[in-house]
Design a binder for these strands. Structure first.
Lengths: 147, 147
DNA sequence: AGCTTGTGTGTGCGCACGCACCTATGGTAG
DNA sequence: CTACCATAGGTGCGTGCGCACACACAAGCT
């Protein structure tokens, strides 16, 4: 197998893993916690942000979703009391999404379910060396993408 | 970093790579060849199938798409003359999707563009050892999934 | 101040996607 | 042969998603 074929095969297997696992994880999280995966992602990023708040654009950059989609998901989270929209006094164009106490609680409840799902369907199939190899390869690809 | 954190980080970086590259490859293929990525995937599987034909269900199993979606994409491909629906004389419930000569021609024209995109955005960032590591890790995950 | 350009968000709209359901045929038991 | 369940495939419909656009504000230049 040539180098080119190996790279293509790696990419195609990555696509298959993504297609197989994402729906499974989504269902598992939603069944166990009531949170769609996209909501969870947003809560996760907000939870790990300074003051548990992010401007919409920054949030969209961190989450694997378009800015448009983030705007709408934040709408839904606000209507469920998990997130609040907060004005930015330094720039009246921008809005902060801030995690509420309830949002934080729901996130903390959901996190173990999500992590367990990743472990069961993904990490547990790999040695730590393999997982590290995947992570470092993905980071190299991402770094090239941004540059 | 614990084993668990490494696995989760690997999964999250995989999600980011997928989210970043798929739209780029889709645009590149579509701009250069007029074929949406989903069409390309279907043509690819048909092209490498025996007699360049597959039953709808088998096609859906191979492609990273639902059976529903495949049915509709085959409709579009038929209306563009790239694929034909063929009856299966042995089982009148089932239908074959068969690559036409024109479909084969279009696929062959598109393949280099797609492969070049994968190389440029993905494979070229990795050594062959790294690409092989990713491929073998993904296969292990997939194997566990099916079993 | 006025004008221009750039940035941060929200929204109308159309496409992609898959679930639930339906029909048609095949296979099997009695 | 009839009854029944399983399998192949297509379709109505709702949802997720992002592009293109609109709008508000910021920042810099003359």
């Amino acid at each position: 197998m040539t180098a080119d074929q190996t790279g293509v095969a790696a990419w195609e297997s990555l696509l298959r893993v993504h297609a197989a696992l994402v729906p499974i994880l989504d269902r598992e999280v939603q069944r166990a916690t009531g949170l769609p995966l996209a909501w969870y992602d947003v809560l996760l990023e907000l939870n790990s942000a300074p003051n548990r708040r992010l401007r919409m654009t920054d949030l969209a950059d961190r989450v694997v979703l378009s800015r448009t989609r983030v705007s709408r998901i934040v709408d839904e989270l606000v209507s469920h009391g998990l997130v609040a929209r907060d004005d930015n006094p330094a720039d009246r164009r921008s809005a902060y999404a801030v995690l509420t106490a309830e949002g934080r609680r729901r996130f903390r409840a959901a996190a173990p379910v999500y992590l367990a799902g990743i472990a069961r369907h993904f990490s547990d199939q790999l040695t730590q060396v393999e997982a590290n190899a995947v992570r470092s390869a993905m980071r190299k690809v991402l770094r090239a993408q941004r540059g």
